[in-house]
C-alpha cells in the first residue's frame, strides 16, 4: 500500500481553504493559476480555464471572508486586454494587475477595476519580444521581471514595458534555465526563479547576477521535481511549490529545509453551500476516507493527489498576502489552501 505523510512537523499552520470548482462564470474557480491582493483587501484570482473554454477565463474578485465581489474579462482574442492562455499574475505596489499570456506572448496591465492600462510583447527572442512568458513579479520601483519558458530566460522591463535587460539561456549551469516558471522577489529586491525543468530554485541579484541555487532533482527533503513557484517572506523564509512532487516546501533564508506540506484542504464556505443542498453527496462523503490507502501501482505524487482530495494537486502558484499568509493556488482542484508560518 502506498501512503504519504500529510504534514511534517514544523511552523506551518493550516488556516483554511477558499474556493470551489465551477463550469460557468461567477462564483467559484476554473483552473486558478495565480492570485494577488489589493491594498483595500480584495483578493484577485486568475482563472486560466483551458483552450476549449476560453470564454470562462477571468479574474475573480473576493475577500478574506469568502464573499464573491465580481469578476472581469475583456474576452478571448488578441484585442486590448483580451487573453487566451493567461498563466501568471501579480499586483504591483501602485495597484496595477500584471498578467502574462503564454499563447499571446505578452504582458497585459489592468487597474484594479479591471480596466485595461497597457500591454506589450509579441512572439520572438529579441529584446522586448517574449516566448512563453510565465511568472511575473514587479519590484517596489516598478521594474517588471518576466520568466520566459521557451526563451529560457528572464527579461526585465520598465513599468511602461520598455525592455531593460535579459539574463539566461538554455542550460543547467549557473544562471542558465530550462523552462523557468514562477518568479519572486525578496524584500531587498533579489530575484528567485523556479527553474522548472532543472528542478531547482535560482537566486539572483536584481541585476541578474547569480547568487546561489537551492535544491536538485528528487523527492527528498529540499529536493524538487519541477518547481512551479516560489515566494519569500519578510524574514527571508523561502516557500517552494514543488509541483511534480505535489507538495510545498519551506526553506530557511539559507535554503535549508524546514518543513514539507502535502495539503490538508477542508470544505470552503462555497463548498459547504454545495454540500448543504446536495445531501446525498454530503452523506456519502461523510463516511468516505478522503485519504485512502492506495494500491501499489498508484505510486506517483500525481496519481496519489488525483485520488486524495485534501492533498495539493497541481500547485501552480504561491503568494503571500499583506499579513504573510501563504496562498497555495491549485490548478487541478480549483481552490486555494491558506497556511501561515508561526513566528516564535
Amino acid at each position: 500500500m502506498t501512503t504519504a505523510t500529510a504534514v511534517s512537523a514544523g511552523p506551518m499552520e493550516y488556516l483554511k481553504t477558499i474556493g470551489v470548482t465551477t463550469n460557468q462564470s461567477g462564483r467559484g474557480f476554473i483552473n486558478p493559476y495565480d492570485c494577488g491582493f489589493t491594498n483595500d483587501g480584495r483578493i484577485m484570482v486568475l482563472n486560466h480555464a483551458d483552450a476549449a473554454r476560453t470564454a470562462l477565463i477571468r479574474i475573480g474578485v473576493l475577500n478574506w471572508d469568502e464573499e464573491y465581489l465580481g469578476e472581469f474579462s475583456k474576452g478571448t482574442g488578441r484585442g486590448e486586454g483580451q487573453w487566451t492562455l493567461p498563466i501568471g499574475m501579480t499586483i504591483s505596489n501602485d495597484q496595477r494587475i500584471h498578467v502574462t499570456d503564454e499563447h499571446l506572448h505578452r504582458v497585459t496591465v489592468f487597474d484594479t477595476d479591471g480596466d485595461f492600462v497597457r500591454m506589450w510583447g509579441e512572439k520572438g527572442d529579441g529584446a522586448g519580444q517574449l516566448n512563453g512568458p510565465a511568472g511575473v513579479a514587479v519590484a517596489a520601483d516598478g521594474t517588471v521581471y518576466v520568466a520566459e519558458q521557451y526563451n529560457h530566460r528572464v527579461q526585465v522591463f520598465t513599468s511602461e514595458g520598455e525592455p531593460v535587460s535579459i539574463w539566461g539561456e538554455f542550460g543547467d549551469g549557473d544562471g542558465q534555465f530550462n523552462m523557468p516558471w514562477g518568479l519572486a522577489l525578496d524584500t531587498t529586491g533579489n530575484v528567485y526563479v523556479a527553474d522548472w525543468r532543472n528542478d531547482r530554485i535560482q537566486k539572483f541579484t536584481k541585476d541578474g547576477q547569480h547568487l546561489t541555487t537551492y535544491g536538485s532533482s528528487g523527492t527528498g527533503d529540499g529536493e524538487f521535481s519541477r518547481p512551479s513557484a516560489v515566494a519569500v517572506d519578510s524574514e527571508g523564509y523561502i516557500y517552494v511549490a514543488d509541483w511534480g512532487n505535489e507538495r510545498i516546501q519551506l526553506l530557511d533564508s539559507d535554503g535549508h529545509f524546514i518543513q514539507s506540506l502535502r495539503g490538508q484542504a477542508t470544505l470552503s464556505k462555497w463548498a459547504q453551500d454545495f454540500m448543504s443542498v446536495n445531501p446525498d453527496e454530503y452523506n456519502t462523503r461523510q463516511i468516505a476516507n478522503l485519504v485512502p490507502d492506495l494500491p501499489d501501482h498508484l505510486d506517483t505524487p500525481y496519481l496519489i493527489s488525483a485520488q486524495t482530495e485534501p492533498y495539493f494537486w497541481g500547485p501552480v502558484s504561491l503568494r503571500l498576502d499583506p499579513e504573510e499568509r501563504l496562498f497555495v493556488v491549485e490548478a487541478n482542484r480549483h481552490r486555494i489552501q491558506v497556511y501561515q508560518r508561526r513566528k516564535d
Binding site: V20, E281, T284, L290
Partner: peptide, 26 residues
C-alpha cells in the same frame, strides 16, 4: 472501489464538486 458509496454517488450525478473529480482505486 474504495469509498464506493461516495464515488458511485458522484459518478451517477456527474459531480465535479467541490474540488473536481476524485479518481478511483480498487
Amino acid at each position: 472501489l474504495g469509498n464506493v458509496e461516495y464515488m458511485s454517488t458522484r459518478a451517477s450525478r456527474d459531480s465535479i464538486w467541490p474540488y473536481s473529480r476524485i479518481n478511483w482505486h480498487f
